[in-house]
Design a binder for these strands. Structure first.
Lengths: 207, 207
DNA sequence: CGCCATGCTGTGCACTCGCACAGCAATGCT
DNA sequence: AGCATTGCTGTGCGAGTGCACAGCATGGCG
């Protein structure tokens, strides 16, 4: 897995790198993301990524200084897409409901997110990227919903908005994860619980 | 990484393997678990595990047919310990409260669990082990708490016991995960929310 | 025309990996 | 005493890895 050459920290000249807006580069990132989802981060090697994209292995090193940089690029693309999609959801007429639906989409990144979480355990750069993404993700929710919450008759003592956000996020991610394993005990009950709360503030069928 | 063995069935005589109750074997399992927590499943190689345990690499293959078998052993040990500890928590005078505290212990496996989840994505044997463990884990909770719930004045329409269990599990695991990344936005609020619910059924200071 | 930046490639090094196979020393069984 | 089992080890193969380095062809620009 780790076959690191002798010299790791050659800081000065670095080598010639390809352009960031290259189409080839994007193809490599996408191939890497697919590989990650299909076979885990351990399968993301320069030769495999290249093979998947129909390109030569050296191109990976031409566009990315290290494999970690590739992984980071994959993460940033996925993170931006997610923020994009969440932002659209939060702009809906019933943002709470939309947020709940959004975070329950299977495409919400489930498997890939898991891989990155595991990666974060021993790759400081990735850990950092995930942390700031998570923070921004939550802040985006809070910002978009703060005005809406004021108009609902939510007693902030009884149910602080932030608590509801964390609650929804926790439940949807754990449920999604368990479902992907084939475990579904108790899911229906907790989903109904959340949806009842949402129904109170955003009754279905009302625009 | 990929060592596809065409022969999955144990029909072949395979090679000589060490005893399952060996002390050396246990040492290897523990070394593997530590490595996993410290550096991810990618770091669990025969040579590294052996080095960590102060043993020779070949011993890994002497006690485990494949590296997957090692990983599985690590998981099963951890799973049993967790079931053990949860069972003790559920036997407390205030089982709901104990369960909540138990699932909020950092040692609840956080990082290692994450690694196994990621592994499960592409290792069917491990996926299966995790699924049945998760199911048993939840069932153990349900069984231990069903009688208790009856004595509390919980309206099962408003808050089904199963929903509360899934809710507590989801929140504690996501909170723990985020905290390990340094993200804590909204945690205090949601924790208070859960603890208020618990307080209703199991008032603090009452034995 | 020469020049040089850019995208890409051929070759190769130093290293890690899983795992096989043959054997050794000690211990227990008969 | 003879033999088999058990724990462990030396050696080594074939495959895979990250990444460096020195080129090649092309196209824009002076």
């Amino acid at each position: 897995m780790l076959a690191k050459g002798a010299k790791v920290a050659k800081s000065a000249p670095s080598r010639r790198l390809g352009a960031e807006d290259s189409k080839t580069r994007a193809a490599l990132v996408e191939a890497a993301q697919q590989l990650m989802a299909e076979a885990g981060y351990g399968a993301v090697s320069s030769r495999r990524v290249a093979a998947k994209a129909g390109l030569k292995p050296q191109l990976v090193h031409y566009y990315f200084r290290t494999m970690d940089d590739l992984l980071l690029a994959v993460f940033q693309v996925a993170a931006e897409q997610n923020l994009e999609r969440q932002s659209r959801a939060l702009a809906a007429r019933q943002p709470l409901r939309a947020l709940w639906e959004f975070s329950n989409e299977p495409a919400a990144g489930g498997i890939v997110v898991m891989e990155f979480m595991a990666l974060a355990n021993h790759r400081p750069a990735i850990r950092q990227a995930i942390a700031s993404y998570a923070e921004e993700f939550r802040q985006q929710q809070a910002a978009a919903l703060s005005s809406v919450f004021a108009s609902y008759d939510i007693d902030p003592e009884e149910l602080p908005p932030m608590a509801l956000l964390v609650l929804m996020a926790s439940i949807s991610s754990v449920i999604g994860l368990e479902r992907s394993l084939g475990v579904t005990t108790g899911h229906a009950e907790v989903i109904r619980l959340v949806e009842d709360v949402i129904e109170r503030y955003e009754p279905q069928g009302v625009g």
